[in-house]
């Protein structure tokens, strides 16, 4: 059923977009204010915009380093998690193995585990491996946390590929692994890419593990680093808003470019077609 969109609809839409975007808008407006104006009133627009807050944000804390750490950790996580997950998703959807229900059940159960219930043994494990304050120390738990999501979404995508392709590959003498690598995986590329974006965002946003495992400032990721701008006595809102704008821009770009894919990935697991 397609209803027509009337004038009230667009009014509603504008209000909705304004409300969801307001925090970003206000944070951006604050970030370009001269520092003394931030603490002196609630005017929306400043008459003399300044970049001082941005300079401060980069000077007081290693913001670029945080971003680099986040990029390294999230990229590594994405590549490894997708490799492992696509193998499992392929086996579960297209190979004649037993216990598929049990395997998917375990995967789904793992997605429900609260992170606080596993953090202390993981902390001990990472500590004993000597991996605290390193990329690998975060990547190992992140891969596992993102596996259920990745397997689940990839399985939906793999299932959509027609089975006839595999059969003709088999007739041509391809081994099952060749079929996976040369036929199914390339065909599922859009789905794989979608899953990769979701895994990347999940790893980028993770907080609890990053806070406990990489406690050295040189190894902090963006979410943890940003939350450390508050000092004990003063809250430098100028620096914080500027840093927020800086770290939000990459996400906005990713979302704008890939929005269709993200929506496809988010809704693929929950809606039956």
């Amino acid at each position: 059923m397609r209803k027509k969109a009337g004038i009230w609809f667009y009014v509603f839409l504008s209000i909705f977009i304004f409300v969801t975007m307001f925090p970003f808008l206000w944070v951006f407006l604050t970030s370009i204010r001269p520092v003394n104006e931030i603490y002196s009133g609630f005017d929306w627009f400043t008459t003399n915009p300044s970049l001082q807050s941005y300079i401060n944000a980069f000077e007081t804390r290693p913001l670029l380093l945080y971003m680099w750490n986040s990029i390294a950790v999230s990229t590594l996580t994405t590549v490894l998690a997708i490799s492992v997950a696509s193998l499992s998703a392929y086996a579960v959807t297209r190979l004649p193995i037993k216990f598929k229900g049990t395997i998917l059940g375990i995967v789904l159960a793992a997605a429900m585990f609260p992170q606080i219930a596993i953090i202390s043994p993981i902390f001990n494990l990472i500590q004993s491996l000597g991996l605290r304050n390193s990329y690998l120390g975060l990547v190992i738990p992140y891969i596992t946390i993102s596996l259920p999501l990745a397997i689940w979404i990839l399985a939906t995508f793999f299932k959509k590929i027609p089975f006839e392709l595999e059969e003709s590959a088999k007739l041509d003498g391809a081994t099952p692994f060749q079929t996976f690598r040369k036929i199914i995986f390339p065909l599922a590329a859009p789905g794989v890419f979608t899953t990769a974006i979701l895994v990347f965002i999940a790893a980028w946003n993770e907080y609890l593990f990053a806070l406990t495992i990489n406690s050295d400032d040189n190894w902090r990721t963006i979410p943890v680093g940003l939350s450390m701008y508050q000092s004990e006595f003063t809250i430098p809102w100028g620096d914080i808003t500027a840093a927020t704008v800086v770290v939000t821009i990459p996400i906005v770009i990713v979302v704008l470019i890939f929005q269709r894919r993200i929506v496809a990935g988010l809704t693929s697991g929950s809606v039956k077609e």
């Binding site: 969801t20 970003f24 980028w204 946003n205 907080y207 979410p223 940003l226 939000t248 996400i251 993200i262």
Partner: peptide, 9 residues
């Protein structure tokens, strides 16, 4: 966008 930015941010 609100969904995609880190909760801590």
């Amino acid at each position: 966008i609100p969904w995609a930015i880190p909760t801590a941010v």
